[in-house]
């Protein structure tokens, strides 16, 4: 099997590594680069646990061919905030009780971030549609939706300042 060189930006940092043609993006992120924040719940595009943002859009990294990330900007949960400066979504997920087992959380937050990056006044329905591909078995989604709304408000407030 021929190894291919994959170049892409991961959380702002330029990456260059060898991948197999059959590797998926989640294999690269989790196994090769050791960023295990991105989770794998099904490996078939059916749960959203592996959601990352690629060129501004949420995608299921478990079915995105790794090579498709060539020259792309990929963001994962590890790249959107630091412990002293969390992303507002991370803060509101914590404060609104949107996190239980936490296995869906990284994917859920990445889906929500992709939405808020382009829309700071989403409706409840837009939020639902955004996270409809992210299965959460713990929370019943309500607190997650509230957290996304609250994060949108926070972001709007800081932007208006």
């Amino acid at each position: 099997m021929q190894k291919k060189i994959l170049k892409f930006k991961l959380n702002g940092e330029l990456m260059e590594l060898l991948v197999s043609p059959s590797d998926t993006l989640v294999d690269v992120v989790r196994d090769k680069l050791g960023l295990t924040g991105t989770k794998k719940g099904c490996g078939k595009g059916e749960c959203g646990a592996c959601t990352v943002i690629m060129n501004g859009q949420s995608v299921n990294s478990c079915i995105v061919p790794a090579m498709q990330a060539m020259d792309a900007e990929v963001e994962t949960i590890e790249g959107i905030g630091t412990s002293d400066k969390m992303h507002p979504l991370q803060e509101t997920f914590i404060d609104y009780g949107a996190i239980q087992c936490g296995f869906c959380t990284p994917g859920m937050i990445m889906s929500a971030k992709a939405l808020l990056d382009g829309n700071l006044s989403p409706s409840r329905l837009q939020i639902k549609e955004t996270i409809a591909g992210n299965i959460c078995r713990c929370t019943g989604y309500v607190k997650i939706e509230q957290a996304v709304l609250a994060a949108a408000d926070k972001l709007k407030a800081s932007k208006d300042k």
């Binding site: 949960i77 590890e78 905030g81 969390m86 914590i94 936490g102 959380t105 990284p106």
Partner: peptide, 10 residues
């Protein structure tokens, strides 16, 4: 929640 920060940060 004690576990929430770690989980929110991945």
């Amino acid at each position: 929640k004690l576990d929430a920060i770690e989980k929110a940060m991945g």
